[in-house]
Simulated assay, not measured.
Amino acid sequence: MLSDCAFRAQLALPEQRVLFAYWHEIADGRAMPARADFDPLKFPHLLPHLGLIDLREGFDRGYYRLAGTRLRDIYGQEITGLRLPEVFAGRWATPWYGIHSRIATEAVCAQGVVRGPTDDREHVVLSWLRLPLSDDGVRVDRILCHDMDTGEADTGMATEFTAYYAALQEPEAARA
């Protein structure tokens, strides 16, 4: 797992750095903030790129509660209301399942860059960020998503890259 500074340094886009800094600020020392702490209107320019995965009915019943207008272009369909397996199917089902599952079970932040985030979308170079939210401060009940197609010009970026950050980590000495 990366430290706070190392994770922030891995964020590919300034919009992601702003969103992560805000998430960290509203967490206010907790492992993660609640949905009620997050005010999406603070960042109107990010709204088209934001999504909210709702896990309150359990991970296996997780679905996109909200999806910004640009997510339709990225995923090739309207994803609001769709369950995770309906969005992430085919060859991408397992990697996305693993990412979202780890966020849900370990309350970690995750980010990465991937070409073709779903089948038949190979022209999309997706820079993505996932941030856990929790109403009770313990169980991840929502995942805040930021997805942006960085376009063909950014093909020099890693095509399959994922990094994780946990707000509450054990000190290195305690793990040894």
Rank of each mutant, 00 (worst) to 15 (best):
A9H: 04
R175C: 07
Q169L: 12
A36L: 07
C5L: 11
E170R: 15
R17G: 14
L2G: 09
V114Q: 04
A27P: 03
A27E: 03
L52T: 09
E78N: 02
A27N: 00
A89F: 13
D54C: 09
I143Y: 06
R17T: 13
G98N: 11
Q77A: 10
G156S: 03
I79D: 01
L13H: 13
A34N: 02
M148P: 01
A167M: 07
C109V: 14
D120S: 09
G76A: 02
A89L: 03
L131D: 07
R35G: 09
V124S: 00
A89W: 08
P44T: 00
M157E: 07
M148F: 10
H100P: 13
P14K: 10
I79F: 00
E170Y: 14
F59R: 01
R91N: 05
R65C: 07
E15G: 15
R139D: 09
L129E: 07
R142I: 04
R17D: 03
I53W: 05
L50K: 05
E15L: 13
G76P: 10
D4V: 11
R130D: 15
M148R: 15
W23M: 08
L50A: 07
T150D: 05
E25G: 06
L11T: 07
Y75S: 03
A173T: 12
M1E: 08
G81H: 07
A27W: 03
F38K: 01
T162F: 01
V138L: 03
T105S: 13
L84I: 14
R70G: 00
G151M: 02
